[in-house]
Amino acid sequence: MFRLDGKTALVTGASGGIGAAIARTLHAQGARVVLSGTREAVLAAVASEIAPDGERVHVCPADLSDPKAADALVAAAEVAAGAPLDILVNNAGLTRDGLAIRMKDEDWNRVMEVDLAAPFRLCRAVLKGMLRRRAGRIVSIASIVGVTGNAGQANYAAAKAGMIGMTKSLAQEAGSRGVTVNVVAPGFIQTAMTDVLPEAQREKLLGGIPLGRMGKPEDIAASVAYLASDEAGWITGTTLNVNGGMAMP
């Protein structure tokens, strides 16, 4: 079950911990994967780690803060892979945290641009072909804070909540063509970012997670692989909360 043989997937933000795990898992399930991100050297390293012989792995760097980059990326990915995209994973994102009363417009705008506008443009670009081919999977990586909110992340939480609303709309538009559009909303995932938290803060965080541990990038990747599979063909517009039980919306 959940095999992706013969499918082609584009994963944005594939140089990060979660993105790399998603790419690795989709590849292990048999998909051809195109890795995108801004850091070309890191992408190349991830690609060679996934498949030292380069089989079914391609690298297409892109800076999604450029509004023209999304269309260009989809075109470049299809050329690199030599096949149309069956799966889009919107994983790229960034944070510019700060309490609202001190948040600058540029911090708000940058997060909206990269975390919400760019995924929309990528969806728009892949949907044209998916609708025509009567098949396709879009999985966007949001965040638990898009559902619960989080002090210091008004911009990020708004963008991620926006992603959930966008997904529900696209799911309704594309459903009649067999294209599904879903969200995975991770909770606290063990990454370089959370490794540096003070011990007391980590303890407090863990206390709020019924399953008693931080998430692993692989926990997110497995959910993405499932939603990208043929077997998930009757699930659309949903948000899969993968957070160890920290929030049960």
Binding site: K128, L131, R132, E173, S176
Partner: peptide
């Protein structure tokens, strides 16, 4: 045609 078809046709 459905509404999506008409949009696709126009495009």
């Amino acid at each position: 045609a459905d509404s999506l078809d008409t949009v696709e046709l126009v495009m």
